[in-house]
Simulated scan of single mutants.
Amino acid sequence: MRGLTGKRIVICGGATGIGAATAVRLAEEGCRVLIGDVNVAGAEETAGRIIAAGGTALAAGFDLSDEASVRTLMDRAVSDLGGVNGLFNVGADLSPGTIGHDGDLSAMDAAVWRRTLEVNLIGYAHSCRAVIPLLLERGGGAIVNTSSNAAFVGEPLRPAYAASKAGVNALTRHVASRWGKKGIRCNGVSPGMVLSETGMTHMSEEFLAAGLVGTRSTRLGRPSDLAAVVAFLLSDDAEWINGQTWSIDGGGSLRD
């Protein structure tokens, strides 16, 4: 892709899954990546794979829900990479204690809502806020936020998660509208059902089969599918795309 070689990209949530696959893809495209995650061992493992393949990667522990931690991660990018050209927000609290208790409103747990919004939405606002001045110093740059089809499909459960992702879409449009004329692009990706790198998943075979029936594709998603689109949106080839959130879901959703 055009214009990725040498770019410095911060990945907020790159230890596993889509974040890790994107870190690997960006390094293959010639980017230098800083992989931040609360899962420090996972971030270090991903960075190690990139380095072993001849790429440039650093790992750092950080907490997306902690504004000071987010700022420290950006400071690390400046000190160790020499600046920032792009940001990929992909972290989310998908722990059983949080999303596993995200029931319908009749069973609402306000603590689950607060934790979900603190990580999935306010955390993204913190990272965007921290990176924007760094991008402006370099004449602009690109941000990609991870949303979800849960933001618009109307699920019977997970309303806190859906609300957080709807908020991410609004945040994406805000950043594009406020700083687009200053050279900052902000877009989003909305994944469908994505298997892990190994194909292993905690979801039942019945759930996976139903997910496949609901797509217009021959298979379920892979982290590499999202990584390819994120790399494109961070590249110069996407320089006239701003404020958009794309569904990357094998045709599971059809919308304008």
Rank of each mutant, 00 (worst) to 15 (best):
G3M: 02
L4R: 01
G6F: 13
G6E: 07
I9V: 11
V10R: 01
C12Y: 02
A15M: 00
G17V: 07
G17N: 13
A21K: 03
A21Q: 00
A23V: 02
R25H: 06
A27Y: 02
A27T: 05
C31A: 06
C31M: 03
N39M: 08
V40P: 00
G42M: 04
E45L: 10
E45H: 08
T46A: 06
A47M: 02
G48C: 04
R49P: 02
A52S: 14
A53D: 11
G55N: 07
A57P: 01
L58K: 03
D63R: 14
L64H: 12
D66V: 12
E67V: 12
V70S: 00
V70A: 06
R71G: 04
R71T: 08
M74I: 11
M74N: 00
R76D: 05
A77Y: 01
V78I: 07
D80K: 03
D80H: 08
L81C: 00
G82E: 00
L87N: 00
N89G: 08
V90M: 04
D93E: 10
L94K: 10
S95R: 13
P96W: 04
G100S: 10
D102N: 11
G103C: 08
D104H: 12
S106Y: 05
D109F: 07
A111Y: 03
V112I: 14
R114N: 14
T116P: 08
T116F: 04
E118A: 14
E118C: 07
V119N: 08
N120H: 12
L121P: 11
A125P: 01
A125H: 12
S127A: 15
S127G: 05
A130E: 02
E137W: 01
R138Q: 11
R138G: 11
G141A: 02
I143A: 03
N145K: 04
T146P: 03
N149Y: 13
E155C: 08
E155V: 07
E155P: 05
L157E: 13
L157G: 10
P159L: 00
K165F: 09
V168E: 04
V168Y: 06
T172E: 07
R173G: 08
H174Y: 15
V175H: 05
A176V: 06
R178F: 09
W179Y: 15
W179C: 00
W179G: 03
G180F: 11
G180S: 02
G188C: 15
P191D: 06
P191A: 14
E197D: 11
E197F: 04
G199P: 09
M200T: 14
M200F: 11
T201F: 09
T201Q: 06
S204M: 09
S204E: 13
E206M: 11
F207W: 14
A209T: 14
A210R: 15
G211H: 10
G211T: 09
V213K: 15
T215A: 07
L220T: 07
G221K: 05
R222I: 00
D225S: 09
D225E: 05
D225P: 09
A228V: 10
A228E: 15
V229Y: 08
V230A: 04
A231E: 04
S235Q: 05
D236G: 04
D237M: 05
E239G: 06
E239I: 06
W240I: 05
W240F: 14
S247L: 12
I248L: 15
I248N: 09
L254E: 13
D256M: 13
